[in-house]
Simulated scan of single mutants.
Amino acid sequence: MATPLSATAFVDVLRAERLVVVGEPGWRDRNRNAVGPWGPVHGVMLHHTVTRGTASTVRVVRDGYAGLPGPLCHGMIAKDGQVHLVGYGRANHAGLGDPSVLRAVIAETALPGDREASVDGNRAFYGFECENLGDGVDPWPDVQLQAIEAVSAALCRAHGWGAGSVIGHLEWQPGKVDPRGFAMPWMRSRIAGLLGSGEPGPLPDPVAPMVSLSRLLAAAGSNPSMPGTPVTYDGVLVVESALVDEGLLAKKLMDGHYGSSTFPAMSAWQERCGFRGRKRGQAADGYPGWSSLTALGAKHHFTVIN
């Protein structure tokens, strides 16, 4: 448990790690302190943004979006390794999480599964969003990974924490998948190496994401006619990303739901694969099928499983 650093000390400890830190205008006073306390802090939480492009990503994490006002983190770690500070104080990044996870972070013991969401994490963690689509395909440049390690180590060093005080959003709140594309135990081993308490592991080899056809069909069949009700499934993001790259789906419509936007995009892809007809039950009806989905996976480097 620790009192949050002052804004000046915060930026100083980051720069002491030889990070390139960009203070976005007004970052020191942009927060959500009016709706709840900031601190005591217990650790650092990492996220991915599901965005592409540094300037647009900074705008999103600074300003937020409908239903979730900014700031959405304290700093955004860009693909080039620069750290953009967008707010300081309480930020809308962590949400409610598992109290047993918080106890483990405080004790720096093995993390239990995150099974409930009942403890406020926005007051308790420094939050860093990392520029990445989070689809398992978008790469994590070495310079960005090294910046993530250095940011985490800087704050751990400042508070006397070990690498066990750094967690991913997916370890805190049920249903979250971020950060996706590297393993948090591996990241903690890298941070431990910077802190001098362990040997850092090598950079991970890229792993092709796997998409379950049965889960994708379940997501597609979960009442797509009603906006906001389809099942969220991270495999949908992989498929949506491929459809975006094919020019069949607008990037802004990527949301992890197999819904009203995904169906026509998949139908168009199925027609490219030689299938015809867009009515329910026809070969190009937008419901994912083995042949068209496998063809999409072969082109965009994901694996389809039953």
Rank of each mutant, 00 (worst) to 15 (best):
W140E: 07
D245F: 02
P179T: 14
G136T: 02
D80A: 14
P202L: 14
H159W: 06
V177L: 14
L296R: 01
G221L: 08
P37C: 06
G36D: 01
L19I: 00
D178Q: 15
D80I: 12
I148S: 03
G160K: 05
H93F: 12
C73M: 06
V61N: 01
S225C: 07
G256E: 00
C273Y: 11
P69R: 10
G168Y: 07
A208M: 15
H169S: 14
L145F: 11
Q82D: 11
V238R: 00
H84N: 09
V60N: 04
A265N: 11
R15H: 05
G235F: 01
A124M: 12
V21P: 00
R62W: 09
V244L: 02
Q282R: 10
T51S: 00
H300K: 04
E199S: 15
N306G: 11
L243E: 02
A124K: 08
W140N: 12
L111H: 02
G259T: 08
G277M: 12
P204E: 13
F263Q: 13
L237A: 02
I106E: 11
E17H: 07
S267T: 10
Q82F: 05
V35F: 09
G196C: 13
G259N: 09
P227G: 09
V13M: 05
M187Y: 10
D205C: 08
A7W: 15
E129L: 15
V177M: 12
P25S: 04
V238L: 03
G87H: 03
E149P: 05
A163T: 14
R272I: 07
C73H: 04
A55E: 03
S6V: 07
G136L: 01
S225K: 12
P99I: 07
T49C: 00
G274M: 14
S267D: 11
R157D: 06
G36F: 02
N31R: 13
G164I: 12
G181V: 08
Y287M: 11
I305D: 04
M184Q: 08
G36H: 03
V21S: 00
V11W: 03
E131M: 06
L249E: 01
Q144C: 12
E149V: 14
D63W: 10
W38L: 05
G228F: 08
V20E: 05
L85F: 08
D12L: 05
R62H: 13
S261R: 13
W290V: 09
F263H: 15
P288F: 03
V11H: 04
M184R: 03
L96N: 04
V207E: 14
Q270D: 12
D63Q: 14
P224L: 01
I191H: 07
S214W: 06
D29C: 13
G259A: 06
L296A: 02
I167K: 04
R32A: 12
G256F: 00
R188K: 09
L85H: 07
G277C: 09
L145P: 10
G162F: 06
F263E: 14
D120W: 02
W172N: 01
A208V: 15
A78V: 13
L217C: 14
V143K: 13
F10S: 01
M45T: 01
V177R: 11
E199I: 10
E240M: 03
G277K: 10
S225Q: 14
Y233E: 15
L249Y: 01
P112A: 10
A154R: 00
P185S: 06
L111P: 02
A163Y: 13
R190L: 12
P288W: 03
D63F: 08
A163H: 13
V83D: 04
A183W: 08
